[in-house]
């Protein structure tokens, strides 16, 4: 086995489950050579034979160290092939990479977990962690926004979490037909209605960059400190090791300094066009 982190390790697909029209969850063998267990918010580089490699966040319970769970949306040449893999087929695995959610740092605080669209996938690992260590955290609110009721990821699980007395789930969609009994409206507009304590809340935000930007504005307006707001950023990545240069965002290498970054580190750059 190579000790060069650019060389993938072959691992088998154990199961594949369709989540949404173009979104699947793959369960993979964890692999021998990977650099230890994944942490919530970290990602792996997944390689499809002859096609290419993409960064995908872990979306599973990271305590289950014998398997790796990734939720993939089929949007590009590699992710389409990835999402179509069947059990027993093999992918190349490199990882885990990057800095994940501030799970330890936020112990003792209330958590406001804000997800948009497929951004719920990297946050699901954080939710699993929180539920396993429920006593270490204060009030927990999950605010999840997506395009329409048909685009709600992990719907049964959200339902299950919402049943818990110690976990609040708020789901909102951009638009819906009259069958939908839930909330309609954008995520940032709902932030001020949640009634959380901004002084004692750590916010973890993942979603499309525009949604994160407006959500951060709403969080700051509500009084949450910049240092207590964490975002998971996305940029092009080829190596995941800080060498290929593609993921640079100002002085930040999103692959190794992120993908989860405190807002105070990207403040001022996030709203800059084409930066």
């Amino acid at each position: 086995m190579s000790d060069d982190l650019m060389v993938p390790e072959p691992v088998r697909v154990l199961s594949r489950q369709q989540e949404l029209e173009t979104t699947w969850t793959l369960e993979l063998e964890a692999g021998q050579a990977s650099r230890g267990p994944c942490l919530p918010g970290q990602f792996n580089m997944l390689y499809v034979f002859g096609v290419g490699e993409v960064p995908i966040s872990v979306s599973g319970d990271t305590v289950q160290s014998e398997t790796l769970v990734h939720t993939v949306r089929a949007v590009g040449p590699v992710s389409r092939k990835l999402a179509a893999l069947k059990p027993m087929e093999i992918v190349g695995l490199r990882g885990p990479f990057g800095v994940g959610w501030p799970m330890t740092q936020s112990e003792g605080s209330d958590l406001l977990i804000v997800a948009g669209g497929l951004g719920l996938a990297p946050l699901r690992s954080a939710v699993y962690h929180v539920l396993r260590n429920r006593e270490k955290y204060g009030r927990i609110i999950l605010l999840y926004g997506t395009r329409s009721p048909n685009d709600i990821l992990y719907s049964p699980q959200l339902e299950e979490w919402n049943q818990r007395p110690d976990f609040e789930v708020h789901i909102t969609v951009d638009h819906a037909d009259s069958d939908w009994q839930g909330m309609i409206g954008v995520v940032p507009a709902l932030v001020p209605t949640l009634g959380f304590d901004p002084e004692d809340t750590v916010a973890m935000v993942c979603g499309p960059e525009i949604m994160m930007r407006f959500t951060v504005n709403a969080l700051r307006d509500a009084g949450v400190e910049d240092e207590a707001i964490f975002l998971s950023m996305e940029r092009n990545m080829k190596c995941a090791l800080g060498h290929c240069g593609h993921c640079q965002f100002g002085a930040t290498f999103v692959c190794k300094d992120g993908p989860v970054l405190p807002f105070d580190r990207v403040r001022g750059l996030l709203s800059l066009k084409e930066f």
């Binding site: 990602f43 993409v54 960064p55 995908i56 966040s57 993939v72 949306r73 949007v75 590009g76 992710s79 948009g116 669209g117 497929l118 951004g119 990297p122 926004g145 997506t146 395009r147 685009d151 951009d174 638009h175 409206g185 954008v186 940032p188 507009a189 993942c206 979603g207 499309p208 960059e209 525009i210 949604m211 994160m212 407006f214 998971s232 950023m233 996305e234 990545m237 993908p259």
Partner: peptide, 22 residues
Amino acid sequence: TSRLHATQMQILDVYGAPEPPE
């Protein structure tokens, strides 16, 4: 104005746009 902002976001259809990380 807050409804106007919300409408702007809805027009952007942000969830159809790129999302982190893939």
